[in-house]
Amino acid sequence: MNPSFRDITINGLWKNNPGLVQLLGLCPLLGTSNSTVNALGLGIATALVLICSNAAVSLIRNAVTNAVRLPVFVMIIAALTTCIELLMQAFTYELFQILGIFIPLITTNCVILGRAEAFAAKNSIARSSYDGLMMGLGFTLVLVAIGATRELLGTGMLFTNMHLLFGSIAEHWQVVVFEDYKGFLLAILPPGAFLVLGLLIALKNWIDQYYAEHIASTAEVTAPAVSRRVRVTGVVD
């Protein structure tokens, strides 16, 4: 019954990734992924809320009755989001101003309520927190991948304004990848988010398919004719 930590890791980062497979939390995913720093900032904030809410939900899972389960979960998530919002306001004020409405909107991010319901309400604190971490990490990775791709295509640069998140040591992290680049504006504009997300999903499916075929072909080599005999329908060639 209890999923192993290895399964939780694989699920969060790849097999059941919230951004690429569950397609949950698309609003912030599309809205804040126009640069690496925005994506990373919101990804970390979401991951923090997710870890804390999973832990809290798991902690109280035996105390709450079914009737008030959902209101309690929502209250916990909203409170945690408000705390994260206040903390971001205090420590990364400029980033807070850029991300704006998307931080309070973490409350409505379906990944968080989804994990609370589907996982944290049924599993131990350790597993739930770890699931929050892995789901949050998976979400952040996808968000950053989209953010970096859009920033690179749109401006020809990477890691602009990272000091908003990391302070003055990140002042000079900006990398100019393409000199004299025209700037593919579409990537920065909202349609770019959909296009890049679509391409990432395609890439993931392609990798999955490639591995499936690869494994199938090696399996065929190692397990000879026996498998053909078992087949009762279709044509054996």
């Binding site: 025209k182 700037g183 593919f184 504006l185 579409l186």
Partner: peptide
């Protein structure tokens, strides 16, 4: 439209 939005100057 893709190039109109992306490269308005050209």
């Amino acid at each position: 439209v893709v190039v109109l939005i992306s490269f308005p100057v050209e």
